[in-house]
Deep mutational scan, measured.
Amino acid sequence: MEVRTIKVFTTVDNINLHTQVVDMSMTYGQQFGPTYLDGADVTKIKPHNSHEGKTFYVLPNDDTLRVEAFEYYHTTDPSFLGRYMSALNHTKKWKYPQVNGLTSIKWADNNCYLATALLTLQQIELKFNPPALQDAYYRARAGEAANFCALILAYCNKTVGELGDVRETMSYLFQHANLDSCKRVLNVVCKTCGQQQTTLKGVEAVMYMGTLSYEQFKKGVQIPCTCGKQATKYLVQQESPFVMMSAPPAQYELKHGTFTCASEYTGNYQCGHYKHITSKETLYCIDGALLTKSSEYKGPITDVFYKENSYTTTIK
């Protein structure tokens, strides 16, 4: 009895394709271990004539594949690729409408935090270190965002349907971005203890939790000093293409032309909904596939993004 075979390709990165001759009487799992086709788990399936010449994702289970996976995804987590594939199996079914010149995501599976993050990423200057993220990001900007969303979920250790947080998501993504040249110098002034300067680099240099107003941050924000008295913390120097200011959701007025974009969060910790506000020729609110415009805006804002380049204080 002759062994019926077909020729397929296996890959971990969709760049390096490895030619395989597979036995049609055995499952993919018996031949390769966990195997995925377009995100779908085909591990328990036997090869079919229609699979001839198709590319299958496999887990990096030998040295060659491990090197290829690390170079593309910059992670050695053995569960990463499987999590990416199972997320992709959902995100490829989502709709990605162009809204006001940006790629958004039609609401499904509690994905409003991903839509808000995706919209924000198209408006701030950011370059990702893992080629996987950078490639998928370019495709997302062009309207094909399924891979990018699935990668975000995998890097953030999230599953489809789980509630997510924009600030946490951005923080994970910033860790995989090139923020080497970003720098922030802060000064804390206390009447009792004097003053202390701190220099922050990388992710810490672009994120701040405690106030939404970048102007206020430049002037000074009140913080408790270690001595128990009130101290003032203010920005001395900022070198970065953008800054992200966050605070627990509270009524906040966004003035046209003073910011790049913002995240609105309605609801409580267990259950809520994100919308995205962007400042173009007027203010726009993007909620999944829905767009509304207004000249002014007041609502429960939790993150505001500002364009920056270089700032030095005039406070002496």
Rank of each mutant, 00 (worst) to 15 (best):
V12N: 11
F259L: 01
K95M: 12
L37W: 14
Q196W: 14
G210A: 01
E239S: 08
S86R: 13
Q175C: 07
H256D: 05
F148V: 07
D63W: 11
A87D: 00
V304W: 07
I45S: 14
Y113A: 08
A140V: 13
A177E: 04
Q196Y: 12
E168I: 08
I286F: 01
T313G: 09
T302Q: 02
Y269W: 12
A247L: 03
T314K: 15
C225I: 00
V304E: 06
S263L: 00
F56R: 02
V185G: 02
C149G: 02
L37R: 13
L290V: 12
Y311E: 00
V203K: 14
T19P: 14
K183M: 08
S25Q: 14
V8P: 08
H74A: 06
S25R: 13
K183H: 10
S181R: 13
V12P: 12
G267F: 04
L235I: 07
C261A: 01
I286D: 06
H18S: 08
Y208V: 04
S213C: 05
Y57K: 05
I286S: 01
A69N: 09
S50H: 10
G202N: 03
A140M: 13
C190R: 03
T75Q: 11
N89Y: 14
G257P: 02
Y306R: 05
L254K: 02
Y155H: 00
S171W: 15
P97L: 12
Y234H: 04
I301Y: 00
L118I: 10
N187K: 12
H48Y: 14
V166A: 06
G267T: 00
D135L: 09
T258D: 15
V166M: 10
L173H: 00
K280A: 11
Y214G: 01
T292S: 12
F305W: 09
K233G: 12
A154T: 09
H273P: 01
T76V: 12
A289L: 04
L153E: 00
K298N: 12
V8A: 12
Q197F: 08
I152H: 01
R66K: 15
Y252Q: 01
S25Y: 05
P34A: 12
F56G: 01
R83H: 06
M170C: 14
Y137S: 06
Q230K: 11
Q270K: 11
G101V: 02
A145R: 04
W94Q: 08
E68Q: 13
V67T: 15
M85G: 06
Y306Q: 11
P300I: 15
G101Y: 07
I286K: 02
F9H: 06
Q30S: 13
T35M: 15
Y138M: 14
L153W: 04
M170T: 05
M26V: 12
L173E: 03
T258C: 06
K280M: 15
Q216Y: 03
Y28R: 07
I301R: 03
Y172C: 15
G101Q: 07
T199Q: 09
S104A: 10
L121W: 08
S279A: 04
R4V: 12
Y306S: 02
V42R: 06
K298A: 11
Y265H: 05
S104R: 07
Y72M: 11
T27S: 11
E162V: 02
G101L: 05
I223P: 00
L81Q: 09
Q237K: 11
C261E: 02
Q270G: 02
A117M: 11
D38E: 13
A289F: 02
F32M: 13
S240Y: 00
F9Q: 14
C190K: 01
F217E: 02
P34H: 11
L59N: 14
L173W: 03
R184E: 02
H256V: 15
C261G: 04
L212P: 04
F217G: 03
A140N: 08
Y269E: 13
P47E: 04
T76M: 14
T5C: 14
Q175N: 13
I301P: 00
S181M: 11
Q251G: 00
T27L: 12
G39S: 14
G33K: 08
